[in-house]
């Protein structure tokens, strides 16, 4: 464990806590893409299938449980909570996310560390996570001004993988034979997808203005 990875995990955790706060405090999920939440639930379920077979550390196991449980709770809340689900922007959240699942699965079958069930699921989760934010970014562009908590949620979610890139650079220089090229390339793509969001988020912070993404 290094400071970049720990900071990345904490930033990821904060993004989930901010989203939970937004939904709990406002009893609304307006501006949140349910499709992105469903994709993230799939990412965690596919990536953490080894939660019961591979024990890495108490920290690792607890964080996996927290990520799976919180994301499933958010999806359930957006689908099943009688108050929250009324505020879901169903007509704006129209990204064809099934294509993202299919493309990630095909790519995982072609490019993986080893042709085993677990490795292919892991690669699938890595590729899917890289594009999981797309429905959310499209929804933000369509929904005009973005409330603060939603903007902070997306910001922290984008920042965490950027910190992981620093972690991979650090591990590359400090650990012999360290190679995470699938996660690294995918992480670079993932972080790059946030580039314009980060730009407009910085502008809104600098000008102390409401965050607004151009349509």
């Amino acid at each position: 464990m290094n400071i970049f990875r720990f900071a990345g995990d904490m930033t990821h955790l904060i993004s989930i806590l901010v989203l939970l706060l937004k939904i709990y405090a406002t009893k609304s999920c307006s501006g949140i893409s349910r499709k992105t939440q469903e994709l993230y639930a799939l990412v965690f379920l596919a990536r953490y299938v080894d939660i019961f077979t591979e024990f890495i550390s108490v920290y690792n196991t607890i964080m996996k449980i927290v990520f799976i449980a919180s994301t499933l709770a958010i999806v359930w809340c957006m689908r099943g909570h009688r108050v929250v689900r009324r505020s879901y922007d169903k007509e704006l959240d129209t990204f064809r996310h099934y294509f993202l699942i299919a493309a990630s699965l095909v790519l995982a079958l072609l490019v993986h560390e080893k042709f085993t069930f677990q490795e292919i699921l892991w690669a699938f989760s890595i590729y899917l996570e890289a594009v999981a934010i797309l429905p959310q970014l499209v929804l933000l562009q369509r929904s005009g001004n973005v409330d603060n908590l939603t903007g902070q949620y997306v910001f922290f979610l984008g920042a965490y993988r950027g910190l992981y890139i620093l972690n991979w650079i650090y591990r590359y220089f400090t650990e012999p034979h360290f190679s995470r090229w699938i996660a690294c390339v995918s992480g670079l793509v993932q972080t790059a997808l946030y580039a314009d969001f980060f730009y407009y988020y910085f502008l809104s912070w600098k000008n102390n203005a409401k965050l607004k993404l151009p349509a």
Binding site: R5, D9, I56, E113, K114, Q118, E119, Y164
Partner: peptide, 10 residues
Amino acid sequence: GPSSYPKDEL
């Protein structure tokens, strides 16, 4: 290719 390493990252 390289053997599958333990996935110690989240």
